[in-house]
Simulated scan of single mutants.
Amino acid sequence: MTDVLIDMEGGANTRAGRAFAWILFTEIPEGDWWVGGHADNTFVSPPGAFLVNVVVPEGYMNAAHKSDVHAAVTSAITQVMSGSSQAGVAASVLVVIDEVTEGNWGAGGKTISLDSIADSVGLPKSGERFRWVRSYFEAKARQFASAGYPVDVGGLLASAASHRQPPIA
């Protein structure tokens, strides 16, 4: 699963990139997980019920990246649990991607940005993926400006905040 995370995060297979790839498995006691009103496997497909929560910085994944993550995480679980990745086998593997708003992620007691994460894990900011990230945040900055949001509202890459234009009078 770590390799899936490294791949989905842009391939930062560095010491810092691996240190950023956290996985938490929590087994739910029998009778505490209900699907379709039943605590048994009445509505659970092989290899079992899984709820995978993937947490990423906002604006780092477009729709295609998210689809790739859904497929890769589901495939990894089904391969390990059943040795198969046949269609229909993984209907009870749910993958939810949560995006953390820029400025809301912290480590070591400090707020970290997507820019600083890329720097620390060794991802180049000159490639196609980060160009998409910048485009996303530049559009968000323009949207904030046109709606009259305060300049210090947060939620923007510092490098994209410079693309804020004054509100239209």
Score class of each variant (00 low, 15 high):
Gln165Gly: 11
Met81His: 10
Ala161Leu: 08
Gly155Phe: 02
Gly59Ser: 01
Val133Arg: 01
Ala63Arg: 04
Pro57Val: 13
Phe43Ser: 10
Gly127Lys: 04
Val95Ala: 00
Pro124Arg: 08
Thr14Ile: 05
His38Arg: 12
Gln143Cys: 14
Lys110Gln: 14
Leu123His: 13
Asp40Ala: 13
Gly109Glu: 09
Asp32Phe: 15
Pro124Asn: 08
Thr74Leu: 09
Pro29Ser: 11
Asp115Arg: 07
Met8Lys: 11
Lys66Glu: 10
Val89Met: 14
Val56Leu: 15
Glu27Thr: 03
Ala12Asp: 03
Ala63Cys: 05
Ala49Gly: 07
Glu99Gly: 04
Ala19Pro: 02
Val89Asp: 07
Gln143Ser: 13
Gly11Tyr: 09
Ser67His: 14
Leu157Pro: 02
Arg18Cys: 03
Gly127Thr: 12
Trp22Glu: 07
Gly31Asn: 07
Leu24Val: 08
Gly48Thr: 12
Gly36Val: 13
Asn62Ala: 04
Glu99Phe: 08
Ser92Asp: 02
Ile97Val: 07
His70Ile: 04
Pro29Asp: 11
Val56Glu: 01
Gly154Cys: 02
Ala21Ser: 05
His163Val: 08
Asp32Arg: 14
Gly11Pro: 00
Ser159Gln: 06
Ser45Trp: 07
Asn13Ala: 11
Gly17Ser: 03
Val56Met: 09
Arg18Thr: 15
Pro29Lys: 06
Met81Cys: 12
Glu128Ala: 04
Ala145Cys: 05
Ile112Pro: 05
Glu27Ala: 10
Pro124Phe: 13
Ile112Trp: 12
Gly31Lys: 03
Val153Trp: 11
Asp152Trp: 03
Leu51Ala: 14
Gln143Gly: 07
Ser113His: 03
Gly59Ala: 13
Leu156Met: 06
Ser113Asp: 05
Val56Ile: 03
